[in-house]
Write a protein that binds this DNA or RNA. Structure first.
Lengths: 227, 227
DNA sequence: AAAACATAAATCATCGACAAAATATTAAAT
DNA sequence: ATTTAATATTTTGTCGATGATTTATGTTTT
């Protein structure tokens, strides 16, 4: 009756299962193509069958998992062809969002862009120097920068779909070992992007973004071809 | 042992529930904002709780249903603000797909565009005359026409997301009573679109599509404002 | 030995009953 | 009339049972 912890902070088991599975799929702990047998998952995550199945259905809707009738679930496989396809979609939607955002962005947006670019460029420099200690932080700021650019697009739905594509691409990025030779001229690319955005040069922003992502794609394709 | 119906063609109960619920949500049988209590659904659809919950999770991922922790599910509400947002996204993604498709479309695509435009324009004419008997058929051909235009975009992912946005818009369309005064110059709009696509005039195609969909949006907003 | 078939073992999909947690509702008390 | 307490309702999750369907295994046939 009188326990201090009356506020509900713990997410549902479905939500926990969803988050855990999604994370494991994205970072490769659950390998692409792997069959997801309910019993195994149950002992693996310590969660009952029902919440697990519900989480799997949601993951299926998001494209992380394939559900085939009477044959259970499996981690969505990765393959180069699909990645090209995915990246095309990602770039297309990103640019669509950019077109709107760069035109509509107000002064506050400008300030955020400047801030995000500033922080990121600092880490970009460290990345080049090799003095970067916290790579995860770079990841975060990089994502933040790109998200800020599109943030003023004025459509939550568009952002939602953009995020969905983004996270799918992320899976491919993580799956590859590109990290070692990532040291492109990211610094130059990022500052050029920021500059173009602030100058409201829509076409340039789109072109730069497209090239930016397309380069990443090329790097990945090299060794994703193991499939 | 020997019953004639040994082959399994029937979809899973989850799939049935998903399809049925989705249909009912789109066509308004399940009203926007309505709470979806499992027990009620169970007797309503004659399907057990587990498959229902799984279907609801999938619908939640697709945005047809809202799942709030410990408070169950409800049909995603409709409101004018959200529709503007949604339509922005829809137009953006459609145009992104069009840009790619119109450039990449081969001769076969051209032929399909011509065919789809031909069939649709015929019904457009009947719509104007008032001699149209089967409105559903017009709907189908209209959808087919637009789908054909983007079909050569070269990215299944992009088409997938385009479809998701399309179907969400559809929900708003169905929810409104605009049908009566639909008689715009659809014929002109459609044939202009087809012509521009065949002439590979990317920018024109995008502009026409944008206007096309934006007009629909305006019609809807008039009476969606009941919310 | 390869293909075809039959049998057995796993796995999946579903149900129904029940327990635990959270939310909503009603009643009581200040 | 608010706040507090008590009660009811709903949601979430567990468990075990059951029938269907796959998948694996083994055996026969050509």
């Amino acid at each position: 009756m009188e326990d201090g912890t009356s506020f509900n902070s713990e997410p549902t088991l479905v939500e926990q299962a969803f988050a855990a599975l999604r994370k494991d799929i994205i970072d490769g702990t659950r390998a692409p193509g792997e069959r997801l047998r309910i019993d195994k998952l149950r002992s693996l995550y310590g969660i009952g069958a029902s919440p697990l199945r519900e989480a799997l259905q949601r993951l299926a809707a998001d494209g992380f998992v394939i559900a085939s009738s009477n044959r259970g679930f499996l981690v969505a496989p990765l393959n180069p062809t699909e990645f090209e396809d995915l990246n095309t979609a990602r770039i297309a939607v990103e640019c669509a969002a950019l077109r709107l955002s760069v035109v509509a962005g107000d002064e506050d947006w400008e300030a955020q862009v400047v801030a995000a670019a500033y922080s990121l460029e600092k880490l970009d420099r460290q990345l080049i120097d090799g003095t970067l200690q916290d790579f995860d932080r770079w990841e975060v700021l990089n994502a933040k920068f790109h998200t800020t650019l599109v943030s003023a697009c004025g459509s939550r739905w568009l952002l939602r779909h953009r995020d969905m594509l983004q996270i799918q691409c992320e899976r491919y990025r993580r799956a590859s070992v590109y990290h070692a030779r990532l040291k492109r001229d990211l610094l130059t690319e990022h500052s050029a992007l920021a500059k173009a955005a602030l100058a409201r040069d829509v076409e340039l922003v789109c072109r730069l973004t497209q090239e930016h992502y397309a380069k990443t794609a090329n790097h990945l394709l090299v060794d994703a071809s193991a499939d």
